[in-house]
Amino acid sequence: MNLTENEKLLEWSAKNYSEQIKKDFFQDNNNTSYYVKRDNLHCIEEYSWKTVLELNHKLNEVWAENSVMMEVQKTVLVTIMKAHQEKKETNKTSIDEYILPEYVYVF
């Protein structure tokens, strides 16, 4: 993935960042319990998309009602396509493909 794509993602996060978003993500609250009720909408599903449109449709299922994510959706789609192409062309492997990173958890 080239730097431009990284920069676009960073630009988006910087522009849309807010204290409330941060608070929501880090669950910065004083609730009496930290459990979250599950919706169980995605326990099992098909994952065989072939085109950008099909992937876009899958992302819509998760992000359709989130305007901030909708804003970055196109960039994400392009990045996914470009990254795959780059991997194919350069046969580039990630740093941790062969050896588990020593002190970093793999997310």
Binding site: Y47, W49, I80, A83, S94, D96, V106
Partner: peptide, 13 residues
């Protein structure tokens, strides 16, 4: 994280 996620995990199929 981007390269792993965008070039491999998203393309797991």
């Amino acid at each position: 994280n981007c390269f792993d996620l965008f070039s491999k995990k998203m393309w797991i199929h």
